[in-house]
Design a protein around this nucleic acid. Structure first.
Length: 670
DNA sequence: TAGCCTCGAGTTCA
DNA sequence: CTCGAGGCTA
């Protein structure tokens, strides 16, 4: 028993030291070593131990205060009322417990809540005296923060004087809010920094903290920070019955209230609100890491009061973290279709945003060197914006000295050919003309939907065909027969027959598909289509001199040279000849005409009545074009379910939007 | 010559 | 989906 108590004491002390350390890194140095999720984990563990062992709680425990001492350089501001932090919840069960606690405390059956997105930024307080902004400060440790008035004043959405519509302003108004950097501004800032040779910010919150702590407010003024408000501290000369009323009053005074807030009548509605925001998270123009649930009635809020460091009437329901830290086990190059060696990191499996991640591409050597990722490093990984994980930053302070740098091999790991880096290019390329890795990728690209469209020829089969030597060059595909195919693993007579039919079918292709399938550098499906429309026949494309190629829309000197170089290479000329000899017949396509001739479409989200490639075909059949990104040149954005950032951009640029019904009507479907 | 627009290329997990 | 870069246009 005594020994158990000792070990608990030991663990509490260890946790406190760790939390104090990370507090300092985060709040004072703006340079955290661990993710928020890991920090929260430590904090929760300490809270749990202290709850179970109240005798061990001391006033200097990190649980007994909010943050750490402010960095030097700014004057200190004492908040009239302590700026509290929120209790966290990570599941519906915990929110139900929160609701049950409150109902029990107040002896009520039902409580109305307000839901707000939990903005991932920097918490601040603005003080308005007689309606004039006098002080802006960071939260700091909750009791005292830093005076960042000059920087706050640069934020466009912060009124320097409240709008009162002729009536008297409140004598005193302390507003609590969150400063953040909108995502597009964050990306633009990182691009600029990269060009200037400065390190990138790991995430918008770090960028916000860095911007807000500039001693020179002219720098801050160049960062398009924004501030939204979600609460008040001390107020004289005004009062609000509910949180919703408070937000409305702030808005009336010209402040920006937290967007997308809602009054919620039950835990069910709270859960629906949470799920809705979680689903729309990626499409929002700012980062959020959860929702904040507050008791709406301010009188009830006062009755509930607070427990040590947080109000009893609010809880932050956090989303599953999209960031996580893990360790790089190995870095190895993979060989792509064009021979490019792409370094990839193999990591200890870790859960991020609901899936287990093991691999992440490191894109190229410049990236590896810029981030200085080494084998054995602890890294922060993220699945932001899209699904694909990437390494955000290396936690250099966790290095032990055992880490190994990755060097690009001088010879291809698959075929042993020399690896070269062309002048002015970031990519390293395998020069092996018969590299099996390249052949596999090229074969798969050849069979791809947008190219020859050979269904059933997937990764596994390609692997077998190349490894068994059945396919040494692309034209070998057209010499396969039933007897050899059925020898392969997992290949019966039925699937072999189907595959042969698909291969046979692919011979009746179109010129643009065929040109795409060849895999000419810088020629994708759009350029292939333009070439086909311009030259009409394969022979004409193959024979075209550079000057003629440049007459094609979107083909300049670079692309023209690349095309010419491809066909001038004897092995490529032979490849084209052999494919044609094998029976491949690329048919010319009609020039674009039709009802939608010259119209540009962008597709976003999913459609119920057809797939995206199908929608593209339908549009093109009527002479329209489908492009990947929205610009003011775009004629229509087709908005499906779960539309992404393209819809936002369309709204901003005032581009016409079509829902599925309107789109079908345009296509001429009933 | 700069800035916009579009295209190409690479890519993870279930 | 996003980034980098080629090509086009004001």
């Amino acid at each position: 028993m005594a020994r158990a108590a000792e070990s608990v004491e030991h663990e509490i002390e260890r946790l406190r030291r760790a939390i104090e350390h990370h507090n300092h890194r985060y709040h004072v140095l703006d340079d955290p070593e661990i993710t928020d999720a890991e920090y929260d984990e430590l904090f929760r563990r300490l809270e749990a131990l202290e709850r179970d062992h109240p005798a061990l709680v001391t006033p200097d425990s990190p649980t007994q205060r909010v943050g750490a001492a402010p960095a030097s350089g700014f004057a200190t501001v004492t908040h009239r009322q302590q700026m509290l932090s929120l209790q966290n919840a990570t599941s519906r069960e915990e929110v139900e417990e929160f609701d049950a606690r409150i109902r029990k405390f107040l002896a009520r059956d039902a409580i109305a809540y307000t839901g707000e997105p939990k903005m991932d930024g920097v918490a601040v307080e603005l003080v308005y005296e007689q309606g004039v902004l006098t002080v802006g400060s960071t939260r700091g440790d909750g009791v005292t923060g830093e005076n960042v008035t000059a920087n706050i004043r640069t934020i466009k959405s912060v009124p320097l004087r409240l709008r009162t519509g002729g009536r008297a302003a409140p004598r005193l108004l302390e507003v609590r809010g969150e400063v953040y950097l909108p995502l597009d501004a964050f990306r633009a800032l990182n691009r600029e920094r990269e060009e200037a040779g400065l390190p990138r910010f790991a995430n918008p919150r770090n960028a916000t903290a860095g911007s807000l702590k500039q001693l020179d407010s002219r720098i801050t003024a160049n960062r398009p920070l924004d501030l939204v408000c979600h609460g008040v501290g001390e107020v004289e000369g005004a009062s609000f019955a509910t949180q919703a009323e408070l937000l409305a009053a702030l808005a009336a005074w010209g402040l920006k209230p937290v967007p997308q807030s809602r009054v919620l009548a039950s835990v069910d509605e709270v859960a629906a609100y949470h799920d809705d925001l979680a689903a729309r998270r990626e499409a929002l123009p700012f980062e959020i890491d959860g929702v904040v649930v507050k008791v709406d009635d301010r009188t009830l809020q006062r009755r509930l009061g607070q427990v040590s460091r947080s109000p009893r009437w609010a809880v932050a329901w956090k989303f599953k973290p999209r960031q996580a830290t893990t360790r790089v086990l190995d870095i190895f190059p993979s060989v792509g279709r064009t021979g490019v060696l792409t370094p990839a990191a193999e990591m200890e499996p870790v859960a991020v945003g609901g899936v287990t991640v093991r691999n992440a591409s490191l894109h190229n050597m410049d990236e590896v060197e810029r981030k200085d990722v080494r084998i054995g490093d602890h890294v922060v990984i993220e699945r932001a914006g899209d699904v694909i994980p990437y390494v955000v930053e290396v936690l250099t302070e966790r290095r032990t000295g055992e880490e190994r740098r990755f060097h690009m091999p001088q010879h291809c790991p698959v075929c042993g050919a020399k690896v070269v880096r062309a002048e002015g290019e970031v990519a390293y390329r395998c020069t092996g003309a018969d590299c099996p890795a390249q052949l596999k990728q090229r074969l798969q690209f050849f069979a791809h939907r947008g190219a020859m469209d050979i269904q059933g020829l997937g990764e596994k089969l390609v692997e077998q065909l190349v490894d068994t030597g059945l396919v040494k060059h692309l034209p070998d595909l057209y010499r396969l027969d039933l007897a050899t195919l059925v020898e392969l693993e997992r290949m019966g007579e039925k699937s072999a027959t189907n595959l042969l039919a698909q291969i046979e079918h692919s011979k009746q292709t179109t010129l643009p598909r065929f040109l795409t399938a060849l895999g000419i550098r810088q020629v994708g499906d759009a350029t292939a289509k333009a070439l086909a429309e311009h030259f009409r026949t394969l022979d004409a494309v193959v024979a075209a001199p550079v000057e003629a190629l440049q007459e094609v829309r979107d083909v300049g000197p670079e692309v023209a040279a690349s095309i010419r170089q491809f066909f001038d290479e004897p092995r490529n000329a032979r490849l084209v000849k052999q494919l044609v000899a094998a029976g491949v017949k690329p048919a010319p396509v009609e020039r674009a005409h039709g009802r939608l001739a010259g119209k540009k479409f962008v597709l976003t989200g999913g459609l119920a009545s057809m797939t995206r490639p199908e929608a593209q075909r339908r549009i093109e059949a009527l002479g329209g074009r489908v492009v990947g990104s929205v610009s003011k040149e775009t004629d229509y954005v087709v908005v499906g379910t779960d539309a992404g950032s393209k819809l936002k951009r369309a709204e901003k640029l005032g581009v016409a939007r079509l829902d599925e019904d309107a789109f079908l009507a345009l296509l001429g479907d009933a």
